[in-house]
C-alpha cells in the first residue's frame, strides 16, 4: 500500500509552483523548441515530448498559419496521477507531474486518460514518458530547454506562486487561456492568442489496420 512519493503537492504557497506561458503572438512556428527538447531529453525517433501543431487556414491570398506548441500541462489536478494504479505517475510539491520509471509497469492507462495526448510509450524502455518541464535543469536553476531555445522568446517559464515573477505577472495581466479547461485538470501551461482552429476535433481517423 505504499506510495514512495510522500512529497506530493500540498498547496504550500512558499514553495514554487512551476508553470509556463506561450505567447502565440510571438511564436513564429520554427519548431526549435521541438528539436531542443529532443536533444535535451534524448527522445527517440517518431515520438515527441513537445511539439508544435501547425495548421493552415484561409484561401489564397488570405492564408494564415496557426501554431499550437504542445507539451504536458503539469496539471493542478492531473487525471494521469489519479488513474495510475501504482503511483508511478506522481506530482512533486512544486507541481511538476513526473513518472517514476522504476514503478511504472507500462499499463498505458494514463496515456488513454490524458485529455491532451501528451504521453507516449518509450520504445526502448517500455514505460511511459512525457515532458517533465526539464525537472533536472529547473532543479539546477536553469530554464527548460525549449524555453531557452525559443528564438522569439515566446515561452516564459516561472513560478506562479511568486507574484513578482514575470510569468505570474503575465498570467495576471494578459488574456490567457488553457487547453480544455472543461476537463477539470487545471492545466498550468497558459497560452496567449490561442487559435481555436488548432484544436479542432476530427471526425475520422486512420485505423490501425489501415495501411
Amino acid at each position: 500500500m505504499s506510495n514512495p512519493h510522500k512529497n506530493e503537492k500540498n498547496g504550500d504557497k512558499n514553495l514554487p509552483r512551476w508553470g509556463m506561458l506561450i505567447d502565440l503572438d510571438r511564436c513564429v512556428g520554427c519548431h526549435t523548441c521541438e528539436i531542443a527538447c529532443k536533444f535535451e531529453n534524448d527522445v527517440p525517433l517518431g515520438i515527441w515530448r513537445s511539439w508544435v501543431k501547425e495548421i493552415e487556414k484561409g484561401k489564397q491570398p488570405n492564408v494564415v498559419r496557426s501554431f499550437r506548441p504542445t507539451l504536458c500541462n503539469h496539471c493542478d489536478n492531473p487525471i494521469c496521477v489519479k488513474v495510475c494504479p501504482v503511483h508511478a505517475s506522481w506530482q512533486r510539491e512544486d507541481g511538476m507531474v513526473m513518472i517514476d520509471p522504476h514503478l511504472c509497469v507500462g499499463c498505458k492507462y494514463c496515456m488513454a486518460s490524458c485529455p491532451y495526448e501528451v504521453r507516449y510509450i518509450h520504445p526502448q524502455k517500455g514505460i511511459i514518458d512525457k515532458c517533465d518541464f526539464c525537472s533536472t535543469r529547473v532543479d539546477a536553476g536553469l530554464q527548460p530547454s525549449c524555453v531557452e531555445a525559443c528564438p522569439a522568446s515566446a515561452r516564459i517559464f516561472g513560478n506562479l506562486n511568486d507574484p513578482k515573477s514575470e510569468l505570474a505577472k503575465l498570467v495576471a495581466t494578459k488574456p490567457v487561456s488553457t487547453l480544455k479547461p472543461e476537463m477539470g485538470t487545471g492545466p498550468r501551461v497558459y497560452y496567449v492568442s490561442l487559435d481555436n482552429a488548432t484544436m479542432e476535433i476530427k471526425r475520422e481517423a486512420k485505423l490501425i489496420w489501415e495501411k
Binding site: C84, P85, H87, G106, G126, I127
Partner: peptide, 27 residues
C-alpha cells in the same frame, strides 16, 4: 501481454497500490 512489464505489474499492483485507480480494484 498488454502490460509492458508483466512480472513487475504482478507485485507493484499490490505493493504500490493506488486506491483511487480502477485498475487497482482489478488486482
Amino acid at each position: 501481454m498488454q502490460v509492458c512489464w508483466p512480472v513487475k505489474s504482478l507485485w507493484h499492483n499490490f505493493v504500490h497500490l493506488n486506491p483511487i485507480s480502477a485498475i487497482s480494484y482489478g488486482s
